[in-house]
Simulated assay, not measured.
Amino acid sequence: MGLEKKHFVLVHGACHGAWCWYKLKPRLESAGHKVTALDLAASGINLQKMEDVHTFSQYSEALLQLLATIPPNEKVILVGHSLGGLNIALAMEQFPEKILVGVFLTAFTPDIEHQPSYVLEKYNERTPSAAWIDTEFSPCANKTLMFFGPKFFSDKLYQLTSIEDLELGKSLARVSSLFIEDLSKQKQFSKEGYGSVPRAFILCTEDLAIPLEYQQWMIQNSALNDVLEIKGADHMPMLCMPQELFDSLHQIATKYE
């Protein structure tokens, strides 16, 4: 593809949407890259309701459809934030030949030894229920719905992000799900699929939602190729430190041709 122009596909985390990349997208585009920021099912301005999304594959449909349309001779850089790490892992499993590198941005990073739900289950084991503050959980058919409360937003996700972006996040948030029930029934990702694609992780040192030591545990557990760090970033580096995030992605992009 040559040194220069890459196609970045940006995948948001739970309760968020394509809107959360609004500071990063123009930076990447100004550097000459192509950028697709998409809304997963029932997220952002996607009209579906989370109650009607029954599987993690269905939740990931927009991403999988996009990759299906990428021409055979082209490759993209996938960037998954938070829960979006599992969406990009699913895409890497299904379309390994179309992905230059998968970037896990303080994201849940599965391995090839366990079920896809393993990193979420381990996270839940070490996270006391009080840490969820005012996040609401409610059972719905074969999954559990989740909606981050305003205090969880301000104290755990956006604690170093501007009050304007915090307000934006709270006003655009939508009900989500971790899909643990569905992911626990899926077979593990394969060495030939997900495991064959280069993977990079971007650590955020001040993340209180996915704390640093858990990010480090996932990096070791998943045997990642590259690890970069954004010092002083909370869980939302694309909002609180977009330039540093751009620099990290630029570094990764130049490495993979």
Rank of each mutant, 00 (worst) to 15 (best):
K170I: 13
A209Q: 09
W217C: 06
P72I: 09
E4R: 14
L66S: 08
A209P: 02
V175A: 13
S222C: 12
L100Q: 12
K49S: 08
S30A: 15
G17V: 10
W19R: 03
F8G: 02
Y158Q: 07
D155E: 15
D234S: 10
V175C: 15
L178A: 07
E206D: 14
D182M: 10
L249G: 00
M236S: 13
L212G: 10
S60N: 14
A68I: 02
L63M: 04
K143S: 03
A37Y: 04
K185Y: 07
L10G: 03
E93Q: 13
Q65D: 10
A173T: 04
P110F: 01
M241Q: 15
T135V: 13
T36S: 15
I230G: 02
D234I: 05
E125V: 00
M236H: 05
K5W: 06
K49C: 01
L24C: 05
L100H: 05
L145G: 01
A41K: 04
V227A: 10
S154V: 13
A233G: 09
S82D: 07
N87D: 11
V9G: 06
S57P: 00
L3E: 13
L63I: 03
S82I: 02
N124D: 14
E4Q: 14
F153E: 06
C140R: 04
L157G: 08
C20M: 15
I77H: 05
K34E: 14
V11G: 06
I219D: 04
H114V: 00
A253Y: 01
D207Y: 08
L86W: 05
F104H: 05
K25L: 13
E229F: 02
V9S: 06
R27F: 07
Q186C: 10
H114F: 11
P242H: 08
K23R: 14
K156E: 13
A68W: 04
L78V: 00
L208H: 11
D155C: 11
E93G: 04
K5A: 12
A18H: 10
K49G: 00
E257D: 15
K6A: 07
K98E: 02
Q58F: 06
D247I: 03
S176I: 03
A130P: 00
Q159F: 10
G85C: 09
L172Q: 13
S177D: 08
L166I: 11
E93N: 09
E74H: 12
P110Y: 04
